[in-house]
């Protein structure tokens, strides 16, 4: 189980995340919503370790991981996807995924083996390429992909890590209407079949309705609502803070 306690971060004078306390359980998909600049991505950065909090703690299975590096947190099972495209641009699509598989299997330290000779890693890579329907693109450079495919590769790399906690930051933004459902059903199956803990930052209300077991609303860095989708959507504060911002028209 993942937990944040009074997590805050201040950038200069601006309190981007303000005392957020929250628990995330296995098998549960939590949608994190809020207007632009609410602190959703920053909250992710605090949990996965890219940004150090000004105060507060992050706990995983009861252990304090607040001081661990991003790499160490990933090795403990926190997988983080990014809102901004964040790939290895000069490497191939398959190699991007292979590197993530290799990381999750802790094989990066081998100096004198040949990476290409590692059959099990290769098989896992092909498997993921097929699941995200990108097998035909495997040899292309990540930088050459269309934006939608880059977003898909982003998701594929997260899948390749096989973490216990999946953090998706607007995974389908920029994807076409045909591409998005592929990714969304993959995300759905993680929680349904895998019993994984899934955190999903998402703007699209139909997606949230279809997938979320629970909704968290952030506004100006504060956690202003937390509960079952039906209940949270009704709340005044959500109507004002979130839907009132014109984001409901999606």
């Amino acid at each position: 189980m993942l937990e944040t306690r009074d997590l805050s971060v201040r950038f200069g004078g601006h309190l981007a995340v303000d005392a957020v306390s929250c628990r995330f359980r296995p098998g549960e998909l939590t949608a994190i919503v809020g207007p632009n600049g609410a602190g959703k991505t920053t909250c992710f950065n605090l949990i996965s370790g890219q940004v150090a909090p000004t105060s507060g703690r992050v706990l995983l299975e009861g252990a304090d991981i607040t001081r661990l590096s991003p790499a160490a947190r990933t090795r403990r099972g926190i997988g983080r996807g990014f809102q901004q495209t964040n790939l290895f641009p000069g490497l191939g699509v398959a190699e991007n995924i292979r590197l993530a598989v290799q990381a999750s299997r802790r094989k990066g330290g081998a100096l004198l083996r040949l990476a290409a000779a590692d059959r099990t890693t290769a098989r896992a890579t092909t498997d993921i390429l097929e699941r995200v329907q990108m097998a035909h693109l495997s040899k292309r450079l990540a930088a050459e992909l269309a934006h939608g495919d880059q977003r898909k590769l982003e998701v594929a790399m997260l899948m390749a890590l096989e973490p216990n906690v999946y953090m998706f930051d607007e995974p389908t933004a920029g994807m076409s209407a045909e591409e998005a459902p592929v990714v969304l059903s993959l995300i759905d199956s993680l929680r349904r079949d895998g019993g994984k803990c899934v955190l999903l930052v998402e703007h699209k209300l139909d997606v949230i309705r279809a997938l979320a077991d629970r909704i968290i609303v952030l506004h100006n860095g504060r956690l202003v609502a937390d509960g079952a989708p039906a209940r949270v959507m009704e709340m005044d504060i959500v109507q004002d803070a979130y839907l009132g911002q014109g984001l409901a028209n999606v």
């Binding site: 983080r80 964040n86 641009p89 990066g108 990476a115």
Partner: peptide
């Protein structure tokens, strides 16, 4: 291969666990 990943994008290399 990890070295090349770090050269390409050290931020992401770190975040996938290296």
């Amino acid at each position: 291969r990890v070295l090349q990943a770090i050269r390409e994008n050290d931020y992401r290399a770190e975040s996938i666990g290296y």
